[in-house]
């Protein structure tokens, strides 16, 4: 079974993470380990999770996002979510995560890229 891909790139103090594929319990372990390794190496002030290529996410994805939110707070940084699909927005809203973590639209994400 195909596993989600993760691409990380640091620009100035922001770590941009693009997740490509489904986020479920099976794929979450690999995604979590990859992102945590990058956080450890880059020590960013901000991390943006780009979610436009995530076609499916269940509560394992919520756990992944909340875990990274905690990890970023531990190092004094912030987490933002970028451009989630309507399905992902629905899951985030059911758990109230969209009230805790800023969700950027595609336009806002581009503005953030331009700023960094």
């Amino acid at each position: 079974m195909e596993i989600a891909g993760v691409t990380c790139q640091k620009k100035d103090d922001t770590l941009w993470v693009v997740i490509d594929g489904d986020i479920d319990h099976h794929s979450a372990k690999y995604i979590r380990e990859t992102i945590d390794r990058e956080i450890f190496l880059a020590r960013p002030h901000a991390m943006v999770l780009e979610l436009s290529r995530v076609d499916f996410m269940d509560s394992s994805g919520l756990g992944l996002i909340l875990g990274r939110y905690t990890r970023m707070r531990e190092i004094g940084g912030v987490l933002k979510l970028s451009n989630p699909t309507p399905q992902t927005i629905k899951i985030l809203a059911l758990a109230g995560v969209d009230k805790l973590i800023p969700v950027l639209t595609a336009e806002k994400s581009q503005q953030e890229v331009a700023k960094s």
Binding site: A28, D58, S59, S60, L62, G63, G67, I91, A95
Partner: peptide
């Protein structure tokens, strides 16, 4: 109950059953 989990180490969040019920 939302946020109840027996597996906190696994970052599961305890939202599985409440989400199933909502949908």
């Amino acid at each position: 109950q939302p946020l109840y989990t027996t597996d906190p180490e696994g970052e599961r969040g305890g939202m599985g059953l409440p989400i199933m019920q909502s949908l």
